[in-house]
Simulated scan of single mutants.
Amino acid sequence: MKIVVLSSHTSSLYWFRMDMMKDFIKRGHSVIALGSEPEVDWKEKFNKHNIDYRQLYVERNGINPFKDLKTLKYLYQLMREDKPDKVFAYQAKTVVYGSIAAKLNGISDFYPLIAGLGSIFRGRGFKNTIIKTIMKTEYWIACKFSKKIFFQNNDDKNEFIQNRLIKEGESIIINGSGVNIEKFKPTPLPQEPTFLFIGRLIKDKGIIEYLEACKKIKWKYPQIRCLLVGPFDSNPSALKPEELKPYLENEVIEYFGEQTDVRPFIAQCSTFVLPSYHEGTPKTVLEAMAMGRPIITSDAPGCRETVIDGVNGYLVKVKDVQSLINKMEFLINNKNTCKSMGQESRKIAKNKYDVKIINQSIMKIMGL
Protein backbone atom coordinates (compact mmCIF):
# COMPACT_ATOMS: atom_id res chain seq x y z
CA MET A 1 0.00 0.00 0.00
CA LYS A 2 0.95 3.65 -0.37
CA ILE A 3 0.87 5.57 2.91
CA VAL A 4 1.09 9.34 3.40
CA VAL A 5 2.37 10.60 6.78
CA LEU A 6 1.55 14.26 7.46
CA SER A 7 3.04 16.72 9.93
CA SER A 8 3.45 20.48 10.14
CA HIS A 9 6.91 20.01 11.68
CA THR A 10 9.53 18.19 9.59
CA SER A 11 12.03 17.53 12.38
CA SER A 12 9.21 15.92 14.38
CA LEU A 13 8.52 13.62 11.43
CA TYR A 14 12.17 12.65 11.22
CA TRP A 15 12.90 12.15 14.92
CA PHE A 16 9.52 11.05 16.30
CA ARG A 17 7.93 9.03 13.45
CA MET A 18 10.92 7.50 11.69
CA ASP A 19 10.66 4.15 13.51
CA MET A 20 6.97 3.93 12.59
CA MET A 21 7.58 4.77 8.92
CA LYS A 22 10.44 2.26 8.72
CA ASP A 23 8.12 -0.40 10.12
CA PHE A 24 5.58 0.46 7.40
CA ILE A 25 8.30 -0.09 4.79
CA LYS A 26 9.45 -3.37 6.38
CA ARG A 27 5.95 -4.69 5.76
CA GLY A 28 6.23 -3.88 2.05
CA HIS A 29 4.42 -0.53 1.95
CA SER A 30 5.69 2.72 0.41
CA VAL A 31 5.74 5.97 2.39
CA ILE A 32 5.44 9.64 1.42
CA ALA A 33 6.32 12.00 4.28
CA LEU A 34 5.07 15.58 4.20
CA GLY A 35 6.49 18.33 6.40
CA SER A 36 6.91 22.08 6.43
CA GLU A 37 10.68 22.38 5.83
CA PRO A 38 12.39 22.73 2.41
CA GLU A 39 13.10 19.57 0.43
CA VAL A 40 16.68 20.69 -0.19
CA ASP A 41 17.36 20.32 3.56
CA TRP A 42 15.49 17.07 4.20
CA LYS A 43 14.84 15.01 1.05
CA GLU A 44 18.16 13.17 1.09
CA LYS A 45 17.85 12.35 4.81
CA PHE A 46 14.47 10.70 4.24
CA ASN A 47 15.59 9.03 1.00
CA LYS A 48 18.26 7.14 2.94
CA HIS A 49 15.38 5.32 4.63
CA ASN A 50 13.48 4.81 1.34
CA ILE A 51 10.95 7.50 2.24
CA ASP A 52 9.82 10.07 -0.32
CA TYR A 53 9.87 13.48 1.40
CA ARG A 54 7.81 16.40 0.07
CA GLN A 55 7.54 19.93 1.40
CA LEU A 56 4.06 20.91 2.49
CA TYR A 57 3.09 24.57 2.57
CA VAL A 58 1.68 25.08 6.07
CA GLU A 59 1.87 27.82 8.68
CA ARG A 60 2.09 25.94 11.95
CA ASN A 61 0.98 28.79 14.21
CA GLY A 62 -0.74 31.15 11.74
CA ILE A 63 -4.47 31.98 11.68
CA ASN A 64 -4.72 33.39 8.15
CA PRO A 65 -7.60 31.49 6.43
CA PHE A 66 -6.24 32.17 2.93
CA LYS A 67 -2.91 30.56 3.81
CA ASP A 68 -4.77 27.61 5.32
CA LEU A 69 -6.75 27.23 2.08
CA LYS A 70 -3.41 27.03 0.28
CA THR A 71 -2.47 24.13 2.58
CA LEU A 72 -5.77 22.39 1.83
CA LYS A 73 -5.35 22.90 -1.93
CA TYR A 74 -1.85 21.40 -1.86
CA LEU A 75 -2.99 18.35 0.11
CA TYR A 76 -5.98 17.82 -2.15
CA GLN A 77 -3.82 17.91 -5.29
CA LEU A 78 -1.17 15.62 -3.80
CA MET A 79 -3.73 13.00 -2.79
CA ARG A 80 -5.47 13.25 -6.17
CA GLU A 81 -2.17 12.64 -8.00
CA ASP A 82 -0.54 10.08 -5.67
CA LYS A 83 -3.72 8.24 -4.67
CA PRO A 84 -2.54 6.99 -1.24
CA ASP A 85 -4.34 4.03 0.32
CA LYS A 86 -4.00 5.34 3.86
CA VAL A 87 -3.11 8.63 5.54
CA PHE A 88 -1.63 9.09 9.02
CA ALA A 89 -1.58 12.68 10.31
CA TYR A 90 -0.73 14.52 13.50
CA GLN A 91 -0.54 18.15 14.66
CA ALA A 92 -3.61 20.35 14.34
CA LYS A 93 -3.47 21.81 10.84
CA THR A 94 -2.34 18.67 9.07
CA VAL A 95 -5.01 16.67 10.89
CA VAL A 96 -7.78 19.10 9.92
CA TYR A 97 -6.83 19.86 6.31
CA GLY A 98 -5.47 16.39 5.70
CA SER A 99 -8.83 14.88 6.68
CA ILE A 100 -10.76 17.18 4.34
CA ALA A 101 -8.38 16.55 1.44
CA ALA A 102 -8.68 12.79 2.00
CA LYS A 103 -12.47 12.96 2.10
CA LEU A 104 -12.61 15.02 -1.13
CA ASN A 105 -10.46 12.35 -2.80
CA GLY A 106 -12.58 9.46 -1.55
CA ILE A 107 -9.88 8.20 0.85
CA SER A 108 -11.66 6.69 3.84
CA ASP A 109 -8.58 5.33 5.64
CA PHE A 110 -7.56 8.55 7.41
CA TYR A 111 -5.98 8.13 10.86
CA PRO A 112 -5.24 11.23 12.96
CA LEU A 113 -3.12 11.21 16.08
CA ILE A 114 -4.07 13.83 18.67
CA ALA A 115 -0.62 14.13 20.21
CA GLY A 116 -1.53 16.62 22.92
CA LEU A 117 -3.90 19.58 22.99
CA GLY A 118 -1.97 22.84 22.79
CA SER A 119 -2.21 26.12 24.67
CA ILE A 120 -5.07 27.42 22.52
CA PHE A 121 -7.33 24.48 23.33
CA ARG A 122 -6.84 24.80 27.08
CA GLY A 123 -6.26 28.56 27.29
CA ARG A 124 -8.57 31.40 28.30
CA GLY A 125 -9.43 34.91 27.17
CA PHE A 126 -11.71 36.35 24.50
CA LYS A 127 -9.40 35.84 21.51
CA ASN A 128 -8.48 32.36 22.71
CA THR A 129 -12.17 31.44 23.08
CA ILE A 130 -12.90 32.42 19.47
CA ILE A 131 -9.94 30.45 18.11
CA LYS A 132 -10.81 27.48 20.34
CA THR A 133 -14.40 27.47 19.02
CA ILE A 134 -13.08 27.36 15.46
CA MET A 135 -10.63 24.59 16.38
CA LYS A 136 -13.38 22.50 17.96
CA THR A 137 -15.43 22.75 14.77
CA GLU A 138 -12.41 21.81 12.67
CA TYR A 139 -11.56 18.85 14.90
CA TRP A 140 -15.19 17.70 14.77
CA ILE A 141 -15.00 17.66 10.96
CA ALA A 142 -11.63 15.87 11.02
CA CYS A 143 -12.94 13.18 13.38
CA LYS A 144 -16.05 12.64 11.23
CA PHE A 145 -13.78 12.01 8.23
CA SER A 146 -11.52 9.60 10.16
CA LYS A 147 -11.64 5.83 10.40
CA LYS A 148 -10.09 5.76 13.88
CA ILE A 149 -8.58 8.48 16.09
CA PHE A 150 -5.40 7.85 18.08
CA PHE A 151 -4.83 9.56 21.44
CA GLN A 152 -1.77 9.41 23.69
CA ASN A 153 -3.58 9.95 26.99
CA ASN A 154 -7.06 9.66 28.47
CA ASP A 155 -7.25 13.35 29.41
CA ASP A 156 -7.19 14.42 25.76
CA LYS A 157 -9.56 11.65 24.74
CA ASN A 158 -12.07 12.61 27.45
CA GLU A 159 -11.76 16.26 26.43
CA PHE A 160 -12.89 15.31 22.93
CA ILE A 161 -15.75 13.18 24.25
CA GLN A 162 -16.95 15.91 26.65
CA ASN A 163 -16.90 18.45 23.82
CA ARG A 164 -18.89 16.01 21.64
CA LEU A 165 -16.16 15.86 19.01
CA ILE A 166 -16.10 12.06 19.13
CA LYS A 167 -18.10 9.24 20.66
CA GLU A 168 -16.79 6.51 22.93
CA GLY A 169 -15.44 3.70 20.77
CA GLU A 170 -14.23 5.91 17.91
CA SER A 171 -10.74 6.25 19.35
CA ILE A 172 -7.86 4.23 20.70
CA ILE A 173 -5.17 5.05 23.26
CA ILE A 174 -1.53 4.37 22.40
CA ASN A 175 1.37 4.89 24.81
CA GLY A 176 2.91 7.90 23.11
CA SER A 177 5.28 7.73 20.17
CA GLY A 178 7.35 5.09 21.91
CA VAL A 179 11.10 4.95 22.35
CA ASN A 180 13.75 2.85 20.67
CA ILE A 181 15.11 1.02 23.70
CA GLU A 182 18.00 -0.42 21.67
CA LYS A 183 19.15 3.07 20.67
CA PHE A 184 18.52 4.68 24.07
CA LYS A 185 20.43 2.44 26.48
CA PRO A 186 21.18 2.98 30.18
CA THR A 187 24.38 4.86 31.06
CA PRO A 188 25.98 5.45 34.50
CA LEU A 189 24.81 8.47 36.47
CA PRO A 190 27.33 11.33 36.78
CA GLN A 191 29.22 11.95 40.03
CA GLU A 192 27.72 15.41 40.55
CA PRO A 193 23.95 15.94 40.49
CA THR A 194 22.97 17.30 37.09
CA PHE A 195 19.53 18.32 35.82
CA LEU A 196 18.42 18.41 32.20
CA PHE A 197 15.50 19.91 30.29
CA ILE A 198 15.02 19.03 26.60
CA GLY A 199 12.29 20.63 24.55
CA ARG A 200 11.20 23.57 22.47
CA LEU A 201 11.71 26.76 24.47
CA ILE A 202 8.03 27.57 24.93
CA LYS A 203 6.44 28.58 28.20
CA ASP A 204 3.84 25.80 28.02
CA LYS A 205 6.73 23.33 28.40
CA GLY A 206 7.42 24.80 31.85
CA ILE A 207 10.69 26.40 30.77
CA ILE A 208 10.23 29.42 33.07
CA GLU A 209 9.60 27.16 36.07
CA TYR A 210 12.71 25.14 35.22
CA LEU A 211 14.89 28.25 34.90
CA GLU A 212 13.62 29.72 38.18
CA ALA A 213 14.05 26.43 40.02
CA CYS A 214 17.60 26.10 38.70
CA LYS A 215 18.42 29.65 39.79
CA LYS A 216 17.43 28.92 43.40
CA ILE A 217 19.01 25.46 43.41
CA LYS A 218 22.32 26.83 42.07
CA TRP A 219 22.36 29.53 44.75
CA LYS A 220 22.21 26.82 47.44
CA TYR A 221 24.21 24.12 45.62
CA PRO A 222 26.68 25.93 43.33
CA GLN A 223 28.44 22.69 42.32
CA ILE A 224 25.44 21.16 40.54
CA ARG A 225 24.82 21.57 36.81
CA CYS A 226 21.58 22.60 35.05
CA LEU A 227 21.50 21.79 31.34
CA LEU A 228 19.13 23.06 28.67
CA VAL A 229 18.71 21.60 25.18
CA GLY A 230 16.20 22.75 22.59
CA PRO A 231 15.41 25.38 19.94
CA PHE A 232 13.68 28.72 20.20
CA ASP A 233 10.25 28.57 18.58
CA SER A 234 7.58 30.57 16.75
CA ASN A 235 4.83 29.46 19.14
CA PRO A 236 2.88 32.33 20.78
CA SER A 237 4.22 31.24 24.18
CA ALA A 238 7.83 31.01 22.97
CA LEU A 239 10.67 32.14 25.23
CA LYS A 240 12.63 35.04 23.73
CA PRO A 241 16.45 34.97 23.60
CA GLU A 242 16.61 38.08 25.80
CA GLU A 243 14.55 36.24 28.45
CA LEU A 244 17.11 33.42 28.58
CA LYS A 245 20.12 35.77 28.58
CA PRO A 246 20.20 36.56 32.36
CA TYR A 247 20.29 32.88 33.24
CA LEU A 248 23.24 32.38 30.90
CA GLU A 249 25.13 35.44 32.12
CA ASN A 250 24.69 34.38 35.75
CA GLU A 251 25.81 30.82 34.89
CA VAL A 252 22.56 29.29 36.10
CA ILE A 253 22.09 27.37 32.86
CA GLU A 254 24.35 25.65 30.33
CA TYR A 255 22.50 26.06 27.02
CA PHE A 256 23.31 23.78 24.07
CA GLY A 257 20.66 24.82 21.54
CA GLU A 258 18.92 22.30 19.30
CA GLN A 259 20.64 18.91 18.97
CA THR A 260 20.20 16.10 16.46
CA ASP A 261 21.26 13.50 19.04
CA VAL A 262 20.18 14.06 22.65
CA ARG A 263 21.79 10.91 24.06
CA PRO A 264 25.11 12.57 25.05
CA PHE A 265 23.17 15.14 27.07
CA ILE A 266 20.92 12.60 28.79
CA ALA A 267 24.11 10.70 29.66
CA GLN A 268 25.41 13.82 31.43
CA CYS A 269 22.35 14.23 33.66
CA SER A 270 21.31 12.49 36.87
CA THR A 271 17.67 13.67 36.66
CA PHE A 272 15.48 14.68 33.74
CA VAL A 273 13.07 17.56 34.34
CA LEU A 274 10.02 18.54 32.28
CA PRO A 275 7.51 20.73 34.19
CA SER A 276 5.19 21.01 31.17
CA TYR A 277 1.61 22.26 31.42
CA HIS A 278 0.27 19.59 29.02
CA GLU A 279 1.60 17.01 26.55
CA GLY A 280 0.49 14.10 24.41
CA THR A 281 3.18 11.87 25.84
CA PRO A 282 6.56 13.64 25.99
CA LYS A 283 9.08 11.84 23.79
CA THR A 284 12.07 13.31 25.63
CA VAL A 285 10.82 11.88 28.92
CA LEU A 286 10.58 8.42 27.36
CA GLU A 287 14.14 8.72 26.01
CA ALA A 288 15.46 9.74 29.41
CA MET A 289 13.56 6.85 31.03
CA ALA A 290 15.05 4.38 28.56
CA MET A 291 18.53 5.65 29.50
CA GLY A 292 17.83 5.01 33.18
CA ARG A 293 17.03 8.48 34.51
CA PRO A 294 14.58 9.46 37.24
CA ILE A 295 11.95 11.92 36.01
CA ILE A 296 10.50 15.05 37.58
CA THR A 297 7.48 16.14 35.57
CA SER A 298 4.10 17.79 36.06
CA ASP A 299 0.91 16.18 37.28
CA ALA A 300 -0.61 17.23 33.96
CA PRO A 301 -2.20 15.54 30.91
CA GLY A 302 0.33 13.37 29.09
CA CYS A 303 3.06 13.88 31.68
CA ARG A 304 1.45 12.03 34.58
CA GLU A 305 1.26 8.82 32.52
CA THR A 306 5.05 8.52 32.43
CA VAL A 307 5.74 8.62 36.16
CA ILE A 308 4.63 6.45 39.04
CA ASP A 309 5.07 9.04 41.77
CA GLY A 310 7.81 7.96 44.16
CA VAL A 311 8.79 4.96 42.01
CA ASN A 312 10.59 6.24 38.90
CA GLY A 313 10.38 9.92 39.74
CA TYR A 314 8.05 12.59 41.03
CA LEU A 315 4.99 14.47 39.86
CA VAL A 316 4.89 18.16 40.78
CA LYS A 317 2.11 20.73 40.65
CA VAL A 318 1.76 22.64 37.38
CA LYS A 319 3.42 26.10 37.47
CA ASP A 320 4.64 25.47 41.04
CA VAL A 321 8.33 26.39 41.24
CA GLN A 322 8.69 25.52 44.92
CA SER A 323 7.24 22.04 44.39
CA LEU A 324 9.82 21.53 41.64
CA ILE A 325 12.67 22.82 43.81
CA ASN A 326 11.71 20.46 46.65
CA LYS A 327 11.98 17.37 44.45
CA MET A 328 15.18 18.52 42.76
CA GLU A 329 16.78 19.15 46.17
CA PHE A 330 15.66 15.76 47.48
CA LEU A 331 17.36 13.95 44.59
CA ILE A 332 20.52 16.02 45.05
CA ASN A 333 20.78 14.67 48.57
CA ASN A 334 19.62 11.10 47.87
CA LYS A 335 21.83 9.54 45.23
CA ASN A 336 20.69 5.98 45.97
CA THR A 337 17.07 6.98 45.38
CA CYS A 338 18.15 8.65 42.16
CA LYS A 339 19.81 5.43 41.00
CA SER A 340 16.92 3.13 41.95
CA MET A 341 14.36 5.43 40.33
CA GLY A 342 16.43 5.44 37.14
CA GLN A 343 16.38 1.65 37.09
CA GLU A 344 12.59 1.70 37.47
CA SER A 345 12.35 4.17 34.59
CA ARG A 346 14.21 1.78 32.32
CA LYS A 347 11.85 -1.09 33.28
CA ILE A 348 8.77 1.02 32.52
CA ALA A 349 10.24 2.17 29.20
CA LYS A 350 10.86 -1.45 28.15
CA ASN A 351 7.49 -2.80 29.28
CA LYS A 352 5.19 0.06 28.32
CA TYR A 353 6.86 2.42 25.85
CA ASP A 354 8.99 0.22 23.57
CA VAL A 355 8.46 1.70 20.10
CA LYS A 356 8.04 -1.78 18.61
CA ILE A 357 4.99 -2.38 20.81
CA ILE A 358 3.52 1.04 19.95
CA ASN A 359 4.05 0.58 16.20
CA GLN A 360 2.47 -2.87 16.24
CA SER A 361 -0.66 -1.33 17.82
CA ILE A 362 -0.78 1.41 15.18
CA MET A 363 -0.30 -0.99 12.28
CA LYS A 364 -2.94 -3.37 13.60
CA ILE A 365 -5.55 -0.59 13.77
CA MET A 366 -4.55 0.69 10.33
CA GLY A 367 -4.83 -2.78 8.82
CA LEU A 368 -1.18 -2.98 7.83
Rank of each mutant, 00 (worst) to 15 (best):
I202S: 02
L6T: 01
P190H: 07
G310N: 09
D85H: 13
Y111N: 03
R293V: 02
R263Y: 10
I32N: 02
I365W: 04
P188T: 08
N128G: 07
T187L: 12
V96R: 04
D19A: 13
C269M: 06
K205H: 05
N175G: 04
S108H: 15
P246H: 12
D19L: 04
F232Y: 03
S177E: 12
A115M: 03
K185N: 11
N105Y: 09
Y277M: 05
N250M: 13
K70S: 07
T137Q: 13
C214E: 07
I130P: 06
P231V: 09
P282G: 11
D354G: 05
S323Q: 06
T337V: 15
E168M: 10
K67T: 08
D309M: 06
A115F: 05
F110C: 10
V262N: 08
N351L: 14
E81C: 11
M18P: 03
L196N: 00
S108C: 09
T260F: 13
Y14N: 10
G302T: 00
D156K: 02
E279C: 07
D41M: 14
S8C: 10
I325H: 10
Y90K: 02
P236M: 06
N175K: 12
I131A: 04
P65T: 06
V321P: 05
S234V: 13
I63K: 14
L368W: 02
E168R: 13
I332M: 05
G116H: 06
A290H: 04
K245G: 12
C338E: 14
Q259F: 10
N154A: 15
E258A: 15
N336F: 13
T94Y: 00
N351M: 13
R122C: 04
K203D: 08
I365Y: 06
I325S: 06
C303M: 03
V179S: 06
N333R: 14
I325T: 07
G292K: 07
P186Y: 03
M366C: 09
C226G: 00
L368P: 07
E251L: 14
I362E: 02
A92V: 11
L78A: 05
T133L: 15
P231I: 02
T129I: 11
M20W: 06
V4Q: 09
M20T: 02
V4E: 00
I114K: 11
P188R: 06
I134A: 08
K67C: 05
G342R: 02
V58F: 11
F16L: 07
I332C: 09
N47I: 12
K203L: 14
P264M: 08
R124S: 15
E138A: 15
Q152D: 09
P193M: 11
S298L: 00
W219E: 15
S36Y: 08
